[in-house]
Structure formats: structure tokens, C-alpha cells
Write a protein that binds this DNA or RNA. Structure first.
Lengths: 224, 224
DNA sequence: ACCTGAACACCGTTCAAGT
DNA sequence: ACCTGAACACCGTTCAAGT
């Protein structure tokens, strides 16, 4: 994270106190520190004051290096976006390859919950996922779907994935019991089949459901 | 909203000043005021101080009547949930009736953007949509889908709807240009068909896309 | 060029006090 | 029972000032 010859706040070397001292930070250090903070303490921990304290500076230093919170988030997501871009699409047929590309978006989100949540809360999902979305569109074109049909198919698949992501990223423990779906179904006295009510009150297997649902959507966009 | 014989802050009658005076509010008044505030100024306007000012009281009065912000949101959503519950499912075949039930969730959200956004931001979507979800499950059972299969189908359809809702409720104007999907595609220099890129940079017709996508998901859960 | 200190305008929430 | 005033611990952001 830091050069060893710079004895910054993250090292144990004594740091000169008082106004005007140098912390030896640059833009990349701030972004790296923010990434670390989010991964360790969740997206809610990314406040200007918290990050500044972690870096051993005052909040105004963050503003000097990267600008406001919005710029910082953009920079974090842009960085993470490149990290996530590497997954190669697998499979031979168009259907398998499209499912592979779709699963990459899903799995990247689940493997990086905190950053994905941050992106979602700040309207930066498109930025984060863009390289993986490009891969999806490529497979659509390879399958012979182009132009407006490709855009429609892409969004159709992408929004479906998005619905599952919202569900997977939601922190259920932070939601009051009265608002949780499981509790609502358990408390419901509608005239439904008891087996149905029981199944609705249980925890879903999101991965299995994701596959079946996205496959149906993918298939609806492929030429027969 | 208020009894006319109570001369509260929303009336023009002079109100006694100073500590300890009566505002004549009850729990329902506070919730109604909150609903009005959200509908007029958006979900971001619902702060304890803002609401208190609108009601002509101090924030602590809100706490006395409805508890903290979480309790207030729950109460607002619970109220709105009952308002939304009225839409009757239409159509004759299982497929049409399921699509009708699904569209009710979609249209309710579009007709009540501010409150739906508030619910989504506070993890209260399940609470808001629950009556409409019950209607969806009823149609699944009427179509012969019960137990775990009904739960799977319900969630599959619901999460798909959720993905479209997130898209529709997002306030694009509040998102920096660099993060917007349209801008990302327009700036992309990937080797894609120009017609595809152009279509991806344009504004999608969400209603049309919603119908096609949800229909594909619904069909995948119906017995052939 | 790089960083601090103080301030501004916000949040949700609590607690003692008033009538 | 119903409501206020003051306070606490937070936010993001700006601006003048220091080295």
C-alpha cells in the first residue's frame, strides 16, 4: 500500500505532528485505503471521516486528493471494475456461453458483496459491471442477436440478474423482523396450501433459482 | 387530516407557544403527514426534523407518537400496503392471470414511485408488496403449482419484477454522467456492431421489456 | 503542493424538564 | 398524557490558513 521509505500513518515510524505536515499520500493510496475499509467493515463504514482517520489524516486531505465522496466512489468502483473483468466466458453452444457470461456477473457480485452493495447504493452498478456486460453482449452477437434485439436481450437478462442481486445483497439481519418476507409469510393467515406457505417462509436457494430463471430468459431471446 | 375543532399547526388558528403546549397530534396524523411529505418532496425529504417542521412540532414529538424512524417507515408502508391491495386480477387463462398479478406489482410501484423507493431503501419492499404477492401465489395455486414449486415460481417471478423495479425507480438525474449505462455504452470502443452499441446507448422501453421478460419466466413455471 | 483546524448545515436519537 | 429545549454523536463539504 505504501512505500516503506515513506513513514506514513500506516507504519510505526513517528510522524511529525501539527498543521502542514506531509502524510505522503497520493490518490491511489486513498482509493486503496477506501477499498480496504469497505472490504473489512462493509460499505456503511465508508465515511470521509472514517477513511481519513484510517489513513491518519483529516477529512480535508481526502478532498484534496480525490475530490468529494462521489468522486471517491467512482474511483473505487472503476478500480474494482478492472479487477473483475478477467473472468473468461466458458462453454461451447450459445446458450451455455450466455449462461456463463450471466453467471460471471452474479458470481462477481457474491464474491464482492461489500463493494457491489456500495456500487448499488450509489448508482454505480453499471460502471462496476460494464466489462462483464460487454462480454454478455459479445455472446449475444456471436449467437446472431444484434442491434435493437441485442439491446433488448441484454437488458432483459441484466435486469433479471439485478433482481437476484438485490435479494442476495440485502442484509436481512439489518431489517426489522416485521418487514422480512419469511416472517410475513409465516404470519400470513391467507387460505393457501400449508405446504406453499411453509416453503415461502423458508430460506430460498438463490443459486439454483438464479440458474433456472436466467436460463428461461436467455432461451426466450435465442433463435430456435 | 385534522379535526377542525382542534386548532393545530396545519390550521390558521393561533397556537399557544412555549414548552408543554398541545399540538393535538396523534399517531395517524404523523403518518399521514409523512405520506404527504414523501409524495410531495420525494423519499429523501423524510427526515425527522423535516417532518416535525411540517407538522409544526419538534422532532421529539414524532418520537413520542410513533417511535423512531424505522417504526415510522414501517407504519407508512403498512398503510400504503393496504391502499395498494385493491387491484383485482384479470384474465381467464392461468398465464394471463399470472401476468396480470405480476403487472399489478409493477404498476403499483410505477404509480407510487416515491413510497416504493422509500420502501426499497429501508428494506420494506416485502411489506409493501405482500398483499399483491399473495394474489400472485393464489394464481399459481389456481394454475396447479403448489408447495416448494409454488415458492420457487413465486420468487422467480418476483425477483425478475424486482430487477425491473430497481431500474425504473432509479433516479438517473441524480447519478453522475460517468456512471450511467447509456454514457458507458456510448463511450465504449469495443468491437461491437454499431447498431447494437447505438441501441444500448438509447433509453429502453421498460414496459415492453417487462412484459416479454416476465412472460418468459411465468411460462417456464407453468405445466405445458 | 500538500495538509490542518474550524466552521456550516445537516442527520437520528435521548433525556430531563415543562404543562 | 403530550410536548419542548438542549444535548450527543454522527454526516458531507468548504474555506482560510499553515509549511
Amino acid at each position: 500500500l505504501r512505500n516503506p521509505d515513506e513513514h506514513g500513518p500506516l507504519s510505526t515510524a513517528p510522524t511529525p505532528q501539527g498543521t502542514g505536515r506531509r502524510a505522503g499520500l497520493d490518490r491511489a493510496d486513498v482509493v486503496a485505503g477506501a477499498l480496504l475499509l469497505i472490504q473489512n467493515e462493509g460499505p456503511g463504514a465508508l465515511t470521509m471521516r472514517n477513511l481519513a482517520a484510517k489513513l491518519g489524516v483529516t477529512t480535508t486531505t481526502i478532498y484534496w486528493h480525490v475530490g468529494g465522496r462521489d468522486d471517491l466512489v467512482t474511483e473505487i468502483i472503476r478500480h474494482q471494475s478492472e479487477v473483475q473483468a478477467a473472468r473468461p466466458v466458458e462453454g461451447t453452444g450459445p446458450r451455455d456461453r450466455l449462461m456463463s457470461a450471466a453467471r460471471h456477473i452474479w458470481e462477481s457480485a457474491r464474491d464482492n458483496r461489500a463493494i457491489t452493495s456500495l456500487a448499488h447504493q450509489n448508482g454505480a452498478s453499471a460502471l462496476l459491471q460494464h466489462p462483464l456486460e460487454v462480454a454478455l453482449v459479445r455472446e449475444l452477437e456471436a449467437a446472431g442477436v444484434t442491434g435493437p434485439a441485442a439491446a433488448a436481450a441484454h437488458r432483459s437478462i441484466l435486469f433479471t440478474i439485478g433482481g437476484f442481486l438485490v435479494q442476495a445483497l440485502r442484509d436481512e439481519s439489518a431489517i426489522p423482523a416485521e418487514r422480512r418476507a419469511a416472517a410475513l409469510w409465516a404470519a400470513s393467515d391467507e387460505q393457501l396450501d400449508p405446504a406453499t406457505t411453509e416453503a415461502l417462509a423458508a430460506r430460498p436457494d438463490l443459486d439454483e433459482l438464479f440458474d433456472a430463471t436466467v436460463r428461461a430468459v436467455v432461451d426466450s431471446h435465442l433463435p430456435i
